[in-house]
Design a binder for these strands. Structure first.
Length: 704
DNA sequence: GGTAGGCACTTTTTT
DNA sequence: AGTGCCTACC
């Protein structure tokens, strides 16, 4: 099965693609030892920039060149992008077909492949994988059916999903999950009473949600892992089958795996050899249940295991590492980590004090253009990192205006865009007629049909035997021109259901006018062009189900770039020279010559949402650490002074303000580590400038 | 009663 | 860019 969702993001890696991975002289002693490790299980602690990815690539190549069949190696990563990068680099290093069968996936996509490959083993066939939007719709349905119980409790469907997902990912029971997530872990009688009141209601709603999923043959993200994990734990036959399928599992970003992922991985300790790579200082996913016990307790949990370390940094110059090291040292947790550069001192990092986001955006744009025109740099030499996707909006506007090509990582995905989902809904319904979420979207897409009427039509549709559902039958249920449209859409796909591309293109022809009407505001400029892309994506799949699921499990097909068609291949801007704008969370593994870290201001680092618990603040610290260590030669940290006078957040008490300032990560930063700058021109020694200097307030902070 | 359209609001991080 | 809430129309 071809996976076109792996459209390469390798633009920035092409230079390193050519090197032969297994030429061991390319590696240092520690890397070599890891690559050629001959024991059973290995945990490799690899600090930022120490050649982690390179070593995984080398390990896979080494195994293949020493006789392991490529299909018996599974590489697991967090994003499809990371997986494809590793796989492509291994393939590039090994001539011929030996490495072609090498598989790299996310945990979720891997589980999906296993479930699909062994339908009898896992007992799931023809299911639909649902994304978070669909989960929310389904949870709303669950809550709607339980109005009595739900009405009393002030908890939103999204919160219920978050609690449930947290519980499943951490494998903690519901009571304790509520305690941790809603009561900050408190264990007193008042808390316990509240928990006892909430828990039964939640349980009821979650059970309803589970039932709805079962009825409609849905699997959500967590289900994918659980289905595989549960089977492996309970069933020896399953373990036997999979032990024949795999000899080695290579896990990237081990520090970000959660107990559910460990639950999935643990049976493989007996089945094959684990090679897990991670860095506890870069653990930034605890909101998703990541637990660095998976790293810290590795040797206790896994018999026949060893730990090795990589700590020589090849990415950054020393002055960039100095500020990164300083940040970690200030932590009350001992990370016991100090990166040393192998590339000399380099340039001192800059802190750029700006008045506001627009000044920040303009400064960055001007610097990039200047370096591009006069400094011999390409756009791909720049990486811009932000705490949140939302914050980069003004920057993107300025880039568009100044014609700086960029690509965003993180944020809304291609297949999550409303107009794409509208079209996919019809495919989904034909793939799985029990898919009520898709039915509702399909029906309410038609002008004149709202939620109420759609529900009643859907009730009629579901009464039909699934084999009796036809375009004709639908127009029998839905009268008038609306029914005619529904029928036409249905037939367009149904007549071509064995040719996904044709299904998509004929459906689009039917829907185009209505789509243009619904999205009149930005149809021509923004949305219309996505459909040729969708058709070409579709071309690479042999069934509707595969197309829908692979799309949902992939996050690499961002909508940020302008997709361009070139022959039969999609070319997106990502293949051209462009700046990368990314959230820190999506930037793991990335690096760039010049790196901007946006808005390192109080309230953002750490985020004011995280104040209150040391664990959360420390996670924020690691987020900043990850950001700082992306830079190879130039690090520019910006900080906005108007974030201090928070007009947007209305009620900040003086005490809170003090807390915000004292928790601020750059507070107390030694002068020698950075150069403070202000943009030239519009920004002079005004009042704003004075505010900028006030950020380093000297408040002590007692973490004990 | 049901639907569509307009307005205001709001955004941590992701599979 | 999406969602929730209100209002005006069928």
């Amino acid at each position: 099965m071809t996976k076109l969702w792996n459209i390469s993001k390798y633009g920035i890696y092409t230079l390193s693609l050519k090197q032969k991975n297994t030429a061991l002289e390319l590696y240092n002693k520690e890397q070599k030892e890891a690559i050629t490790f001959n024991g059973k299980h290995l945990l490799l602690l690899a600090g930022a920039g120490t050649g982690k990815t390179k070593t995984i690539v080398g390990r896979a190549a080494h195994l293949i060149e020493n006789g392991t069949a490529a299909e018996k190696i599974q590489i697991l990563t967090f994003t499809k992008r990371a997986a494809s990068e590793i796989v492509e680099r291994v393939k590039a290093g090994i001539p011929g077909r030996d490495a072609q069968a090498l598989s790299g996936s996310t945990f979720h996509s891997w589980c999906n492949q296993l479930i699909t490959s062994f339908p009898n083993l896992f007992g799931a066939a023809n299911y639909t994988v649902i994304d978070s939007d669909d989960q929310l719709s389904l949870m709303k349905m669950a809550c709607g059916n339980e109005k009595t119980g739900y009405g009393k409790i002030r908890i939103k469907p999204q919160q219920i999903l978050d609690l449930f997902s947290f519980a499943r990912n951490t494998r903690i029971n519901l009571t304790e999950t509520i305690r941790i997530q809603l009561h900050k872990g408190k264990d007193d009688s008042e808390t316990n009473e509240e928990i006892e009141e909430l828990r039964p209601v939640l349980e009821l709603l979650i059970k309803e949600y589970q039932t709805l999923k079962m009825q409609q043959k849905y699997l959500d993200y967590d289900d994918l892992l659980l289905v595989v994990g549960n089977r492996l734990h309970k069933d020896e036959e399953a373990r036997n089958i999979l032990s024949k399928a795999y000899d080695y599992i290579l896990v990237d970003e081990m520090q970000d795996t959660n107990p559910l992922q460990w639950y999935l991985l643990a049976p493989f300790e007996k089945i094959c050899k684990l090679f897990c790579v991670g860095d506890d200082a870069q653990s930034i996913y605890s909101f998703r249940g990541a637990d660095f016990q998976n790293v810290h307790s590795f040797t206790e949990r896994v018999s026949d295991s060893e730990v090795k370390k990589l700590d020589k940094n090849y990415r950054s110059t020393q002055k960039i590492l100095d500020i990164s090291n300083w940040l970690l040292q200030k932590s009350p947790i001992g990370y016991n980590k100090k990166l040393t550069a192998h590339r000399g001192p380099g340039k001192t990092p800059v802190i750029l004090n700006v008045a506001n986001q627009f000044e920040e955006a303009n400064y960055i744009a001007e610097k990039i253009l200047k370096d591009f025109r006069e400094g011999g740099k390409t756009f791909s030499d720049f990486l811009i990192l932000s705490r949140s996707q939302y914050y980069t909006k003004p920057l993107q506007a300025v880039f568009l205006q100044k014609k700086i090509p960029y690509e965003t990582y993180g944020g809304r995905k291609f297949l999550e865009a409303a107009h794409i989902k509208d079209v996919l809904a019809i495919l989904r319904v034909i793939n799985n007629p029990l898919d009520q979420i898709a039915w509702m979207r399909y029906l309410t897409f038609i002008h004149g049909i709202g939620e109420v009427r759609a529900s009643s039509y859907l009730r009629e549709i579901l009464k039909l035997d699934t084999s009796k559902i036809t375009g004709e039958a639908l127009s029998g249920i839905i009268p008038g021109p609306e029914g005619g449209k529904i029928k036409a859409y249905y037939n367009a796909v149904n007549a071509n259901k064995n040719n996904v591309k044709l299904a998509v293109s004929s459906l689009f022809k039917e829907m185009e006018l209505d789509l243009a009407l619904k999205y009149a505001k930005d149809w021509q400029e923004k949305r219309k062009g996505d459909f040729p892309v969708l058709e070409i994506l579709a071309e690479h799949y042999s069934s509707l189900g595969e197309f829908i699921t692979e799309g949902i499990l992939d996050n690499s097909t961002g909508l940020g770039g302008t997709p361009v068609l070139e022959g039969s291949k999609i070319k997106t801007t990502e293949n051209k020279d462009h700046v990368i704008i990314s959230t820190v969370h999506s930037a793991k593994g990335l690096e760039a010559d010049v790196c901007f870290v946006l808005n390192v201001s109080p309230k953002t680092y750490p985020s004011s949402y995280s104040l209150g618990s040391t664990e959360e603040i420390e996670e924020e610290r690691r987020v900043l650490y990850v950001a700082l260590t992306r830079a190879k030669n130039e690090l520019i940290i910006t900080r906005t002074t108007d974030s201090l006078n928070a007009h947007h957040s209305n009620a900040v008490t003086p005490t809170q303000n003090e807390e915000i300032n004292s928790a601020y990560f750059l507070e107390g930063l030694p002068e020698s580590l950075v150069i403070q700058e202000r943009p030239q021109g519009s920004f002079s020694k005004s009042q704003d400038a004075k505010k900028a200097n006030k950020i380093d307030l000297d408040f002590g902070f007692d973490f004990s």
